Computed example of a mutant assay.
Amino acid sequence: MSEEPAENISGGEDGSGAAAMFEERPAETRAEAVVDELGRQYWQKAYGGRDAFECLVRTILSQNTSDKASQPAHDELMARYGGEGDLAETLAEADRAELAETISGAGLYNQKSKMIRGAAREVVAEFGDSTGFDAYVRDEPPAVVRDRLLEIHGVGPKTADCVLLFAGGRGGVFPVDTHVHRIARRLGVAPPDADHEGVREALERDVPGEKCGFGHTAMIQFGREYCTARKPACLDGLDACPLSDRCDRVGVSPETGDVVDPSEATAE
């Protein structure tokens, strides 16, 4: 069993965000119907308002590790460097070995300490401090911000999209991690051979912008509780999964118990 937290740190009752209300209406796409069901299963949240630079740091720490490991590392970093001064300015001048030791619980700490200090120096050089960076993320066109974030060493599409969503509060942004990538293709709401960017494009096209944020967080939670990589709940019977009636089960055979990546299921 995975030792993930019971709730996704980026959403849910104990996470950030405010309850979002929507007028009840029939979903216009299968992807929207899935997200609506996920919202009923978990939560409907509107996001935004986090400090952009801290969000960037937090998401870098989460790369290739679990929330169970990265959250304490983030807490340690903030305890040591998040005092009265500006966080970006402080981390730009931080001793890298000390920074690496501080975040060691997150895994890949030498690599991540370089990324974080490098990102801090870039933010300070171009935006002055965390406040200037935060204003840029919130106020500039999302596509412009995303392209600029992707220029920072260590920032990939998922990290950039998380900053846009959780700090900038941008609608229409659906970050794609390993859970979302797997589940969207299994469900059949994204092409089975789509890479992470292909899944993002499909979901952002077919899910209303105001629902993308909670679609992201709830899909992650669904992936942890029901649609795991090796043993999705439907192997125990279709009634074990709350989304069974909306799922194409691409790459999953409850009859035989076989589970393969969706791209392999259609390669034959």
Rank of each mutant, 00 (worst) to 15 (best):
M1H: 09
S2C: 05
P5Y: 14
D14W: 01
G15Q: 11
G17M: 07
A18G: 12
A19R: 12
F22D: 07
R25C: 02
E32G: 13
L38E: 09
Q44S: 14
D51Q: 14
D51C: 06
I60M: 06
D67M: 11
D75E: 15
R80I: 13
G82K: 09
E84H: 10
A94V: 10
A94L: 09
D95I: 14
A100C: 04
T102C: 15
S104P: 00
Y109R: 08
N110G: 12
N110K: 06
A119H: 06
V123L: 02
D129L: 03
D134G: 08
A135Q: 10
D147F: 01
R148T: 12
L150Q: 14
I152M: 14
K158C: 05
V163E: 13
L165S: 12
R170D: 04
G172W: 09
R185I: 01
R186I: 01
P192C: 07
G198A: 10
A202R: 01
D206M: 07
V207T: 08
V207Y: 09
G209K: 07
K211D: 11
I220W: 03
T228M: 02
P242W: 00
P242L: 00
D245Y: 00
D245L: 01
D248M: 14
R249S: 11
D261H: 10
P262Y: 07
A265D: 13
T266V: 15
